[in-house]
Amino acid sequence: MSKIMENNTPGVRSGLLLIDAGNTRIKWAFTDLPSPDDSAATPIWRASGSVAHADVSDLSTAWSGLTVTRVLISNVAGEAIAERLQHQLQLVFGKNISPEWFASSQQHAGVRNAYRNPSQLGCDRFASAIGAHRLYPQQTLLLATCGTATTIDLIEADGVFIGGMILPGLGLMASALARGTAHLPMILDQVVISRPFADNTEDAIISGCIAAQVGAISTALAFQRRDHPATEITCILTGGSAPVIGPHLPMPYKSVDHLVLIGLWTSVI
Rank of each mutant, 00 (worst) to 15 (best):
I73K: 01
W63F: 09
W63V: 09
H53T: 02
N75E: 05
G78F: 01
A62Q: 07
G78A: 05
E83W: 10
L66G: 11
S57A: 15
A80N: 08
S57T: 15
L72T: 15
E79T: 14
L59P: 01
A80E: 14
L66P: 02
A54E: 14
S57R: 06
G65Y: 07
E83S: 03
L72F: 13
I73V: 07
G65S: 06
V56H: 07
A62I: 05
V68W: 06
L72V: 15
L72R: 12
G65N: 13
V51M: 05
V76G: 10
L59R: 05
H53M: 10
G65P: 13
S74N: 13
G78V: 11
T61A: 03
S50W: 10
G78T: 07
V76C: 06
G65F: 12
A62H: 15
H53R: 07
V56D: 04
L59T: 00
T61L: 11
S60K: 14
R70N: 10
S74E: 06
L72C: 07
G78S: 06
L66K: 03
A54F: 02
S74Y: 01
D58E: 14
T61V: 08
S74A: 12
R70S: 11
E79G: 02
D58C: 09
I73Q: 03
D58M: 07
A52R: 09
S57D: 15
H53L: 10
E83T: 14
L59W: 04
G65L: 07
G65W: 08
A62K: 03
T61I: 13
D55T: 07
E83A: 12
A54K: 11
A52T: 09
S74V: 11
W63G: 02
L66H: 11
I73S: 00
V71N: 02
V56G: 03
V76F: 08
V68M: 06
T67E: 13
I81H: 02
A77K: 06
S60W: 08
S57Q: 08
E79M: 04
L66E: 11
W63Q: 04
A80Y: 06
G65Q: 03
A82E: 15
A80C: 06
A80Q: 15
R70L: 05
T69G: 15
T69H: 13
S57G: 08
S60A: 15
T61N: 11
W63K: 05
A77N: 02
A62S: 15
A82D: 10
V71P: 00
A62E: 00
I81F: 12
V71K: 05
V56N: 02
S60R: 04
L66Y: 11
A54H: 14
A77S: 08
V76Y: 09
E79H: 10
L72D: 03
V71T: 10
V68A: 00
S50T: 09
V56C: 07
L72G: 04
T69F: 09
A82G: 13
T61H: 14
V71Q: 02
V76T: 05
S50R: 08
A52C: 12
